[in-house]
Simulated scan of single mutants.
Amino acid sequence: MTAENKPKLLVLVGPTAVGKTRLSIEIAKAYSCEVISGDSMQVYREMDIGTAKITQDEMRGVPHHLIDVLKPDEPFSVALFQEACRRLIPEVTSRGHLPFIVGGTGLYVESVCYEFQFSEAGSDEEFRQAQVKYAEEFGVQALHDKLAQIDPASAAKLHPNDQRRVIRALEIHHLTGITMSAQLEGQTKQSPYDLCLIGLTMDRQLLYNRIEERIDAMIEQGLVQEVESLLNKGYTPDLVSMQGLGYKEIVEHLVDGVPLDQAIVKLKRDTRHFAKRQLSWFRHMKEIHWVDCTDGNFSKNLADIHAIIAGKFGASLEYNTKH
């Protein structure tokens, strides 16, 4: 299938706090886009502050999908994300709009861009439970170290707190003898879409400063109260959603008595590490056009993005200068 016959798909990725949200709205207004959130946490209702979720006002009328669609105790996975995008992208295209994935969950975004086929390895519940017990006895870092020994590439992309995915990577190797990273490397990397991939980056120290400022703002906006409300509604700390950045650390403060200032220091450190892993993931995606946002010149960054889109999609997209 030639690019002319493939449906168009615009994608904007980058690490947390790099400035995707504000730029995405300008782009969406310019090209009549509907945004599909490529974030594994923003699907959850009542988890707004800790996920830096876009507000209705910030959307400025741009349709957004896969935000606030699940309760915090409902499952969400890369396979479910893929399935949703396979439905949404043709729907958005049929309305005469441009599908636009915006987010920082690398595996989720890449799985749609290149239609990854995930392991049919099945599952081994006994093995999973053994890994859970191992983590309970020796700690999540020790479990992560097990993965690092057999699959360092996958371990580098997964935080020790992400116990569910760490166990799944161990399970895939246990069942198939092939590492998860080797399976992903074996994917064809042929996209079913006429794909325009844009990545945002900036000076590492500046990004870290922005992350710390964002977390300070989250605390001021009521992150502790948000997590407390979730706990009071019966959402337990072991849920995948409650293991997310910003939630696990505050749970440790509220439930385990970790002093708030220590929890915040840990959250800032973990988020910096997360951003580093995000950048590592995106840097191996060969087709990304990078835009460096270090200078903070929003108009220039936006102009660079318009040039990339024009170069990829050409005159087949109208740029609405009256947005």
Results as ranks from 00 to 15, higher is better:
residue 148 A to C: 10
residue 54 I to E: 09
residue 137 E to G: 07
residue 38 G to I: 10
residue 91 E to Y: 13
residue 108 Y to P: 04
residue 278 Q to D: 01
residue 33 C to D: 10
residue 315 A to N: 15
residue 253 H to M: 08
residue 29 K to L: 08
residue 94 S to C: 09
residue 73 D to H: 09
residue 207 L to V: 05
residue 183 Q to S: 10
residue 311 G to P: 07
residue 186 G to N: 14
residue 278 Q to C: 09
residue 299 S to Y: 05
residue 275 A to S: 15
residue 68 D to F: 01
residue 41 M to D: 09
residue 237 P to I: 11
residue 142 A to R: 12
residue 58 E to A: 14
residue 259 P to Y: 13
residue 88 L to D: 11
residue 169 A to K: 01
residue 3 A to Y: 12
residue 121 A to W: 05
residue 112 V to Q: 14
residue 228 E to W: 02
residue 34 E to M: 02
residue 276 K to W: 03
residue 185 E to A: 14
residue 259 P to F: 13
residue 35 V to K: 12
residue 277 R to K: 15
residue 253 H to K: 09
residue 249 E to N: 10
residue 4 E to T: 15
residue 170 L to F: 06
residue 155 A to C: 06
residue 168 R to D: 04
residue 84 A to Y: 04
residue 156 A to P: 00
residue 265 V to F: 06
residue 40 S to P: 03
residue 225 Q to T: 13
residue 194 D to V: 00
residue 299 S to N: 14
residue 236 T to A: 07
residue 28 A to E: 05
residue 151 D to W: 04
residue 106 G to P: 01
residue 245 L to G: 14
residue 120 E to V: 01
residue 24 S to H: 09
residue 198 I to T: 04
residue 230 L to T: 09
residue 193 Y to M: 02
residue 134 Y to W: 12
residue 58 E to F: 07
residue 306 H to K: 15
residue 107 L to R: 13
residue 151 D to E: 12
residue 53 K to Y: 12
residue 226 E to W: 00
residue 158 L to M: 08
residue 237 P to A: 10
residue 322 K to E: 14
residue 121 A to H: 11
residue 87 R to P: 01
residue 125 E to H: 07
residue 246 G to R: 04
residue 272 R to A: 11
residue 28 A to F: 03
residue 207 L to Y: 03
residue 129 Q to G: 04
residue 228 E to L: 08
residue 233 K to I: 07
residue 137 E to W: 10
residue 242 M to V: 08
residue 85 C to L: 04
residue 275 A to V: 07
residue 165 R to P: 01
residue 13 V to S: 03
residue 178 I to S: 12
residue 138 F to W: 10
residue 94 S to G: 14
residue 137 E to M: 11
residue 11 V to L: 05
residue 244 G to C: 06
residue 32 S to Q: 14
residue 227 V to W: 00
residue 18 V to C: 12
residue 49 I to Y: 08
residue 294 T to K: 07
residue 27 I to S: 06
residue 83 E to C: 13
residue 13 V to D: 00
residue 243 Q to Y: 01
residue 304 D to T: 11
residue 214 R to F: 11
residue 244 G to K: 09
residue 122 G to T: 05
residue 76 F to C: 05
residue 90 P to L: 07
residue 242 M to E: 00
residue 123 S to P: 02
residue 211 I to M: 11
residue 300 K to R: 13
residue 21 T to L: 11
residue 290 W to R: 07
residue 201 T to G: 01
residue 76 F to P: 02
residue 81 F to P: 05
residue 215 I to R: 07
residue 146 K to W: 08
residue 173 H to E: 10
residue 254 L to D: 10
residue 10 L to A: 08
residue 150 I to F: 09
residue 153 A to Q: 13
residue 3 A to C: 03
residue 255 V to Y: 09
residue 312 K to M: 05
residue 184 L to T: 11
residue 269 R to A: 15
residue 23 L to E: 00
residue 26 E to M: 12
residue 248 K to A: 05
residue 173 H to D: 06
residue 230 L to V: 11
residue 68 D to H: 01
residue 82 Q to I: 08
residue 162 D to S: 14
residue 75 P to W: 07
residue 81 F to T: 03
